[in-house]
Write a protein that binds this DNA or RNA. Structure first.
Lengths: 166, 166
DNA sequence: TTATATTTTCAATATTTTTTGAAAACAAAA
DNA sequence: TTTTGTTTTCAAAAAATATTGAAAATATAA
């Protein structure tokens, strides 16, 4: 495989995987492009590299910065903005966890808490109450675990996995 | 909150959460409806309960059975099919992991392996090679961890989480 | 066998999500 | 100040995804 073909394939797969997980495909492709770029890129280079419009490039670069996966670099004497991706994969994973946890898991927990307040009526709705109880238990455990992961450093990450697969 | 309102809210949130994660919203709502139903439901009851068409109900019930989250029950003397959800939450989580791992993580790993074969040319593309190397390492670890989780029983699940948050 | 109940399929339609591109906003330089 | 290069916005268009509903297929009963 040509190196250029490999890069192309990597960008495509990263985008495909992301869209399977409910993340905008182009956002992931911009991320992939910056991940494998040896130097920071301008918005124009991103547009060119992925054949996307200026608006699209701009929106997805902002979103990536919002997720903490991409940063801006200003070169002195230059007017253009340069963008580069966080290269440490553990930090990438951590940032994704932080973002999705806040935007998705936490609101779900909130709803579950609200819903759990129907418990007084539970004898008449046993199945419902049991399901809510079990999901709350599981989600809270997942939430705690994610908090631990977020706080853990790169070394801890490996350790946690090692402990789990042992 | 009324119990009926609580059920409604639960179905909606379950659907919302799923669609955030790239899973069809209606599929998750059907799942939620069956989860909190004290007895198995017919396709007609699902249609009625969620105000969806017969085709939609049918497709999503099939998908849920394909994921191993819903099962069919035939009542003797009756012609209709009844559907009920797997209620054990750890089994639910396990089935979701099994399904998504097979459909998404494994294909990604395959692509990464292919892409990694450009390594001979790596000195000329250091950044790319490093990124691929790191992602492969991480994905393989995640893959192993998921395999362990899948094999683990309900008790193990709690243990693993407890070990991680300790 | 034929009639009837039920499920499945899938082309057409509707909805949601993403992308475009040009105008507006902004910011540095002249 | 005005000009020029650059980024941001967002309404309209395009693309992707989900849903409908009626016809076809299937299965049970008569």
């Amino acid at each position: 495989m040509e190196i250029q073909e490999g890069k192309q394939k990597f960008i495509e797969s990263w985008g495909k995987m992301a869209s399977d997980w409910g993340i905008n495909r182009t956002m992931a492709q911009v991320h992939a492009l910056l991940l494998i770029a040896p130097e920071p890129l301008t918005a124009d280079e991103v547009m060119e590299g992925l054949s996307i419009s200026r608006g699209n490039a701009n929106m997805n670069l902002r979103a990536l910065m919002d997720w903490g996966l991409v940063h801006k670099q200003l070169k002195s004497g230059e007017r253009k903005e340069y963008f580069f991706a966080e290269k440490d994969m553990w930090t990438v994973v951590r940032q994704i966890i932080v973002h999705r946890k806040k935007k998705e898991l936490e609101p779900m927990l909130k709803v579950l808490d609200e819903v759990a307040n129907v418990e007084p009526n539970c004898p008449e709705s046993e199945t419902f109450c049991n399901v809510v109880k079990d999901i709350r238990l599981l989600s809270n455990k997942a939430n705690q675990t994610l908090d631990t992961l977020i706080k853990a450093d790169s070394g801890w990450f490996s350790n946690i996995f090692l402990r789990m697969v042992r």
